[in-house]
């Protein structure tokens, strides 16, 4: 009971807990959850949000460290662009592998995660290491690269607002735009989309990879610019994997990704508090997360929105 109270307090017990713990932890989940949701809607099984996040964080860090002296109004947007570009490039590799060689993205994206983590490990011991060369991390970012806080006295930063805006935009485009409709068609029935609709399915799929990767890359930029103000290993405690749970819980609906990300952020913040105050290991939080996801999946609520049968990989099309 104490543990559950501590969990609740850690997530919602105070304005600090909510604005500075829960929502701050929800922010990266919002971006990566959105990345996974959009990809899954097109039946693109991008499970490489982790790697895309890391590459986005690295490129954003390069901009942040190089932008000392430049105005914040320039550096922060440039970090966003760099983060999105980094994630898009990383996902673009998987898109190219699939289109050119028929490599399943489930395999390529997860392997690219390890490559990205290795790259990060190298970067913080090499080109991006702090000048003393002692710690495997970058120098602290100059203030011009710190993303603005949204509320005085709270750690909630611009990234959260950006994520919410992006989620609402994604929802609107999926529901109303021709491009969003094509994306949904390719996810629901690529053969019919091609045959009956003349949809260039392969091109749509490539774009989805890039968009999804860009979204995950923004998560990395938002973490280094809004929270850590430095680049180091262990930047992401597996946000890219939690993202899949976030997206599934939201039934792949971008609007619900906002809610779902906040829920997971609260569990994360609460679990940390529970460990601190009640001595209950934070893995209990993870158990709760896993239980919730399993229940949601089993309820079938998500099932009808999940990608159906796999398409035939490009190489085997008859």
């Amino acid at each position: 009971m104490d543990a559950l109270l501590a969990l609740w307090d850690g997530a919602f017990g105070s304005s600090y807990a909510f604005w500075s713990a829960t929502l701050v932890r929800a922010t990266p989940l919002l971006f990566v959850g959105l990345a996974v949701a959009v990809a899954f809607r097109a039946n693109v099984l991008n499970i490489g949000a982790e790697g895309q996040l890391v590459v986005g964080a690295m490129l954003a860090s390069v901009v942040a460290l190089g932008g000392a002296g430049a105005p914040r109004l320039l550096v922060v947007p440039a970090m966003m662009v760099a983060g999105a570009a980094g994630g898009a490039v990383w996902a673009g590799i998987a898109a190219w592998l699939r289109r050119r060689f028929g490599v399943l993205e489930v395999i390529s994206t997860i392997l690219l995660n390890f490559v990205a983590l290795a790259l990060l490990s190298w970067a913080v011991r090499g080109p991006l290491q702090e000048p003393t060369g002692v710690y495997p991390q970058s120098s602290p970012f100059p203030p011009s690269s710190h993303w603005p806080f949204l509320l005085t006295g709270q750690r909630l930063h611009l990234g959260f607002a950006l994520g919410v805006g992006l989620a609402l935009l994604a929802w609107f485009l999926l529901a109303r735009s021709a491009a969003g409709f094509r994306l949904r068609l390719v996810g629901a029935g690529a053969r019919a989309a091609r045959s009956a609709g003349g949809v260039a399915a392969e091109r749509t799929i490539t774009r989805v990879f890039l968009l999804s990767g860009a979204c995950a890359g923004l998560a990395g930029a938002s973490e280094v610019g809004g929270v850590t103000w430095a680049l180091y290993e262990g930047l992401s405690p597996g946000y890219g994997y939690t993202a899949i749970a976030v997206a599934l819980l939201a039934r792949l609906d971008p609007r619900w990704v906002i809610v779902s990300a906040v829920f997971f952020g609260a569990l994360d913040a609460g679990a940390a508090a529970m460990q601190r105050d009640a001595g209950v290991p934070s893995v209990v939080g993870q158990v709760i997360v896993a239980t919730v996801v399993l229940l949601v999946l089993a309820s079938g609520a998500a099932r009808d929105r999940l990608p159906g049968g796999r398409r035939v990989p490009a190489g085997e099309r008859g």
């Binding site: 735009s177 021709a178 094509r182 009956a196 609709g197 003349g198 949809v199």
Partner: peptide
């Protein structure tokens, strides 16, 4: 769906 290939905008 029949027009999906060349729909534009909203």
């Amino acid at each position: 769906l029949a027009d999906a290939g060349h729909l534009r905008g909203l």
